[in-house]
Amino acid sequence: MAADILALRGLSVAFETPGGRLHALRDVSLGLARGRVLGIAGESGCGKSTLVSAVIGLLPSNARLLGGEVLLDGRDLLAMGAEEMRAIRGQRMTVVFQDPMTALNPVLTIGRQMVAIQYRSGASGAEKRRRAVEYLARVRIPDPERRLGQYPHEFSGGMRQRICIAMALLLKPDLVIADEPTTALDATLELEVIALLRELQGEAGCAVLFISHHLGAIARLCDDVAIMYAGEVVERGAVRDIFHDARHPYTRALLTCDPGRIREATRTLPTIPGALPDLRRPPAGCIFRPRCADRDDRCAVRPGERALGPTHRAACHRAQELAPLARPVA
């Protein structure tokens, strides 16, 4: 626990909306050890974006912190002042966003932007430039020396995302937060970006918090996974635990629905009946109960997390009872 670079303890965040208080995150606890890659998976509305905003300290103004801590290396980020937080962002903690086009300034050259983000380092201009070239080469931008003078629109979408990754790693952070970095990319480019992230993460030894709704990407890249549903972490564990021995009915439903995991071609695809609960009036008991095929009487009481293995945890009364999920043949 103490070795965790990032730890969330019972984090609860709500949004004040005209229709009432919307509970976007409820009692979320997570740990990300140094040098590991933690994937957060979940569908729209599960709270993963809110979680990222909370960690980087950029929650919207109508957000209310109801409790909990976000510990970076043991220090609570939520208790920090704006100034202190700014020093951590972009130094110890950097972010790769979903849309590389809007993340880069369109009117400045890549070189200027890569030099500008090193403003805290005392290095000379030439040294900063050299580092920029080095990192462009690392993310396999051909001819980095020349391309430093080009503008974002002169690069393809995949290259822009690789540049964003280079900028995130350039500052040698302890933690990189990658918020759906491959969602806007084609499958072939997604593969490439993931392979690159994996390789550079290994070299730099930093920890990565990887947010995605694409389970395939998570399986490829991450060491650990947390599955979120409607603002709660319903299951977490090592990649193997989640993909081979899922215990929470929601995780299982999610895996079952993935057409990539259905071996035989079928024209009737599985779905999760029902819809997300209204988070302004979350249902009593287990949050997944209204849609759960395995529910019983105990589910009227909110389940706590149960340990199923050294790292594997699921918030379900029936976690130990459920039969293993039939696995697609690899």
Partner: peptide, 21 residues
């Protein structure tokens, strides 16, 4: 290459089958 990129691996796959864009 497209089919390989789309395949859902249980274990980690090697590098991408096609490079570039």
């Amino acid at each position: 290459a497209l089919l390989a990129a789309g395949a859902e691996p249980d274990a980690r796959a090697g590098g991408p089958a096609i490079r570039g864009e």
